[in-house]
Design a protein around this nucleic acid. Structure first.
Length: 338
DNA sequence: AACTGTGTTGAG
DNA sequence: TCAACACAGTTG
């Protein structure tokens, strides 16, 4: 969806002429750390000064090689052969591309430049749902983030992640646009009364003393099961999901304005499902919600600071894209430059 | 003319 | 496996 990844046409050639284009071989951003064990990657912060330095600057990132024109190439090896992942304006973009490929080719335990994807990260599922060739193709074409975002918006998990055959048809029950208090410290989600009574009218919920509610299990987009206590609060005369809710909010990075959808399997089991969608873009630009909180972490500040500490996967990629010197995605999407 | 990405090599 | 280096093949 929105953009492109570290790999995005925008950041690539087109703007080259006009923009802030990261100047030649000079590292546009502060020397980032190598997240894992150093693989012997050499580091070299060339004092560009003296002219003699004809040698290209080594990258501090794994899988990244300098290009004669100041750009960066990304490559990964497999089966004694190099797999070219494309060229990028920013060293970090190339590093991100390598990370994506590494996790696709070698699994989540692969050594990466940035913190690896968490096991239940949507991005990992996305990555694993594509063939290596497809991933490489997306990276080379700079469409990786686009595709990733796109798959994220469609609530269902990536195509092949779950064999369609194993997915029983679901009935959409209702959506709830979460309010600030739904994602605040109250640890509860208010279920609109009408929806609650229509879809979750279960015995034992409203009972006067049996008002302890009951546990409901929901499966999310990546197959993870969440259990929430569902009960009725007499005080406010409202139905709520309580215990377990805050953890969901935290892990999904839910923010006010986002939407959670509830579904029920049409199969006999009546399995419940819950999906969350980040607030849709408001056209024209990119919704800050969508862009900066994809994984529940506000990457804005960090991105501006042009560093990727603490970032993983997409975050790191987007951070890379939006760092100073980057002319791609972020700049293109957001009306104003930085 | 500029740039990409392959050929190739030596180090780890 | 991996990056450094050179440069042939492409692209604009």
């Amino acid at each position: 969806m929105d953009s492109s990844s570290c790999i995005d046409e925008s950041s690539a050639s087109s703007d080259a002429g006009a923009a802030i284009l990261s100047p030649s071989p000079t590292p546009p951003s502060p020397p980032p750390p190598l997240q894992r064990m150093g693989s012997g990657t050499s580091t070299l912060t060339i004092a560009e000064s003296s002219s003699e330095s004809r040698k290209l600057p080594s990258s501090q990132y794994k899988g990244v090689v300098p290009q004669p024109n100041g750009r960066w190439g990304a490559q990964i090896y497999e089966k004694h052969q190099r797999v070219w992942l494309g060229t990028f304006n920013l060293e970090r973009e190339a590093a991100c591309a390598y990370d994506a490929a590494a996790q696709r080719f070698r699994g989540r335990d692969a050594a990466t430049n940035f913190p690896p994807l968490s096991p239940d990260a949507h991005e990992l599922a996305f990555l694993l749902s594509r063939s290596k060739a497809e991933v490489v193709d997306m990276l080379r074409k700079h469409t990786y983030l686009d595709e990733l975002h796109h798959s994220r918006l469609r609530l269902s998990p990536p195509p092949s992640f779950l064999p369609s055959a194993s997915k029983p048809p679901r009935e959409h029950l209702f959506d709830k646009s979460v309010t600030p208090s739904d994602v605040g410290k109250l640890n509860r989600l208010v279920i609109p009364k009408q929806q609650a009574e229509k879809h979750f009218s279960l015995p034992g919920v409203v009972g006067g003393e049996g008002a302890k509610g009951l546990l409901l299990s929901f499966e999310d987009g990546v197959g993870k099961v969440w259990r929430f206590r569902y009960s009725y609060w007499n005080s406010s005369q409202s139905y709520v999901l309580t215990k377990g809710w805050s953890r969901f909010v935290k892990e999904k990075g839910l923010k006010a304005g986002d939407t959670v959808g509830f579904y029920r399997s049409k199969g006999g089991d009546g399995q419940l499902y819950i999906e969350c969608r980040i607030r849709a873009a408001v056209d024209g630009g990119v919704s800050p919600d969508k862009v900066f909180r994809l994984f529940g972490v506000d990457i804005m500040k960090a991105a501006v600071g042009a560093n990727e500490n603490g970032k993983r996967g997409l975050e790191a990629m987007e951070a890379a894209m939006s760092g100073p010197g980057s002319v791609g995605w972020f700049k293109k999407q957001c009306v104003v430059g930085m």
